[in-house]
């Protein structure tokens, strides 16, 4: 369980806060997507949840951030990382660069935790199959493709058994194939359940299908928080922050010329769009 209460934060030597009075509660097992324009504070919020603020970035943090009821500022980072795993945009930068096989790369965090060897072996095996990269186990990590590297990074963090996984635009530097691989791996985690996922993601079509909840940030403050269909079709948010899925855009255009069923909510997924257009059958409603 993640709880933020009245969190305001500004980076060192800046006066403008990157986060403004954010109050949030994310229950265990929820898959939460974080959307917003560049500079809206998404990454900052991710770092705050993961405890890198205030442990890595100093600056000025007010309010409280609780993970499982404990104030993150009171827990050392090396312990926090076993509760909240953090994945970054650039796959290459997350590979330690000191290991020669994926198996050893996954072990890097476990070695730092001082786990016994048989425990490491067991966790590595379990994580490899959870993320679906058993076939990469003996490969040289720096020679993998972006999508493969990003999945290795996810596995490396998951092997440390965090209850929460925070992903900061994990597919933004990947090609479509790599993005699909990473999404499939994340989806497997959600389906397996038990782990809370907070993911910053611009690919709204994907968010609409898989997220339980969408949180939109504008200028460091919460602008919307709720069910994906509700948040992603919110007209007031379209312009300034997050855009809309292609399905919403199509239906909205149809709605203007009366081709969308009147009391039907705008769609965010392909199925919803198909259903809606089927109902109107290409004739102006009403």
């Amino acid at each position: 369980m993640i709880q933020l209460m009245q969190v305001t934060y500004s980076y060192p030597v800046t006066s403008r806060p990157a986060l403004r009075e954010i109050t949030l509660e994310i229950p265990t097992g929820q898959f939460c997507a974080l959307v917003g324009a560049n500079g809206a504070g998404k990454s900052t919020l991710a770092y705050t949840i993961a405890g890198f603020i205030p442990h890595f970035y100093h600056g000025n943090l007010a309010g409280s951030v609780l993970i499982d009821g404990k104030e993150t500022s009171q827990v050392p980072l090396s312990q926090l990382v076993q509760q909240v795993g953090l994945i970054f945009q650039n796959p290459f930068n997350q590979i330690s660069g000191t290991k020669f096989t994926v198996r050893e790369e996954i072990a890097f965090g476990l070695e730092n935790l001082g786990l016994p060897r048989d425990e490491m072996e067991a966790r590595i095996q379990a994580t490899l199959s959870l993320v679906g990269i058993e076939d990469l186990a003996e490969r040289y990590p720096l020679a993998l493709s972006g999508g493969q590297m990003q999945r290795v990074a996810i596995a490396s963090v998951l092997a440390m058994r965090p209850q929460v996984l925070v992903l900061d635009e994990p597919t933004s530097q990947l090609d479509p194939v790599g993005s699909r691989e990473v999404f499939a791996a994340v989806r497997a985690l959600i389906v397996e359940g038990g782990i809370t996922v907070v993911m910053i993601e611009h690919k709204l079509e994907w968010v609409a299908v898989f997220a339980d909840r969408v949180i939109a940030l504008v200028d460091g403050a919460l602008a919307a928080d709720g069910d994906p269909q509700e948040v992603l079709t919110d007209e007031t948010l379209v312009g300034k922050t997050i855009g809309q899925t292609r399905y919403t855009r199509a239906a909205r255009q149809a709605q203007r010329s009366g081709y969308w069923p009147q009391d039907r909510q705008l769609p965010v997924t392909l199925e919803q769009a198909v259903d809606g257009f089927r109902e109107s059958r290409g004739t102006p409603a009403g």
Binding site: A50, F56, S78, G109, N112
Partner: peptide, 12 residues
């Protein structure tokens, strides 16, 4: 980013 990532693996 590398420093953050290494830190996320409990390096310190």
């Amino acid at each position: 980013e590398r420093a953050l990532a290494v830190e996320a693996r409990a390096f310190n």
